[in-house]
Amino acid sequence: MRFFGYVVAIMAVGAGALGASPATVGQGQAQQIVCQVNRDRVSRYLSPVFLHRTLSDAAITLGQRYEEGTLDSSFFNQLVARRISPLGSSVRTSYKVLGTFTNDSDYVERLERTIYDQLFDRTLDAIGVSESNGVYTVVLASGLAQRPSTIDTCPTGTAQFSPSDPGSSGGNPANVVNGVDLPQFLCTFNSARTRAHADAFVVHRALADEAQAQVEQMVQLGHYTVDGPRKVDESLYAAGVSVKQLYWMAGDTYHGATSLVNLLTANYANYVNNPVYSVIGVAQKNGYWSVILASLYRSVHAYSPCPLTLSDVDYTS
């Protein structure tokens, strides 16, 4: 896959260090939590479970809703239908929010007492975990269609199992904007941003239009380009769009929303997880894709970091 990216500094900004703040030792460490759960499962002659990226993303979303006071069963049902049910034809799932704890061991001890039957179900495949301000959210699932070839009782590193994309069908047609399933893309992208302690992106209409113009240009030229006849910064200036700083990424093989997010977070982490950037525009056509990030002179807020439908997507102009 070929891809590129470049940054356009429209206004000089401070060069202070940017990055995620380290988590408190012993609090919110997903690998430590699953290790303790697995040891207790193995002691009961049950197979170990594994950390699942999609379930952890769902846990982050549920935890955010809980902290906002907007979590209810209808939202969870929508989240299951949108993000978890596609993981297998016979998936069964549940979640539990508990707080407030000062360390992972106390949390696991309480979790095992609270949902013993679910956590020690012999059919349980995987869990996802998130923690914020001592409030923990866990999502459990069985009947998953994809599993890792080997499962470590105590996983090392920070990687979590991610199912392969079902294909490049473009997602739910009702949710597709500029060739991309926008709610799915934002939900996955914003979950990654949350893990990096950055605010969720808001879609900027002008950036989305410019991203669409970029992929149209690449389709016409028959290859991706960074120095084509249409320059991102010049085009936005001409349209009267006021932004502080831009970063543009593009490539020539689109594989679906999840794969695109994985590529961006793997190759452009310093940009896509940078809290300076607050708005985004994305488009794809015939495999060519374009993603534009920007910072504004004003603050914006995503009220639905994990939108389920287009009506939930947060826009700004």
Rank of each mutant, 00 (worst) to 15 (best):
A257Y: 06
Y315T: 00
Y66L: 08
V49K: 09
A213K: 14
R110F: 00
G251L: 09
C187Q: 12
T253W: 02
A250V: 08
H301K: 15
L144E: 06
S85Q: 13
G281T: 07
I280P: 04
H204F: 10
A23K: 11
I10P: 04
G171L: 01
F185V: 05
H197I: 04
E67N: 09
A198I: 05
N262Y: 13
T153K: 11
T258F: 05
N103K: 07
L310M: 02
R53C: 02
T24H: 08
F120S: 10
P163Q: 01
A266G: 14
R41L: 13
Y271D: 14
V243N: 10
V91M: 03
A145L: 13
S43L: 14
E210Q: 15
L186D: 04
R193N: 07
S311G: 05
F3Q: 14
L236A: 08
G69P: 08
Y107Q: 00
Q212L: 09
S164L: 02
G69F: 06
L79S: 01
N286T: 12
N77D: 09
G171Y: 00
L296M: 14
T93N: 06
H197S: 14
F120T: 07
G179N: 00
G19R: 13
Q214V: 07
G134F: 11
Q146V: 08
P307Q: 03
R83G: 02
A20R: 12
L71P: 02
A257S: 15
Y136D: 01
Y224H: 01
G128Y: 06
R83Q: 13
V25W: 03
P163W: 00
Q146A: 14
L111R: 00
A239T: 10
D117T: 11
S149Y: 04
G88T: 08
A302L: 10
K96I: 12
R44V: 11
L221K: 06
L87M: 13
S74R: 10
L62M: 11
V226N: 08
T123A: 14
F185A: 04
L260P: 08
D209R: 15
D199Y: 12
P22C: 06
V180G: 01
Q32S: 12
V177P: 02
S311R: 05
V42H: 09
R122A: 15
D152N: 14
R82M: 05
L124N: 12
D233R: 06
L51N: 10
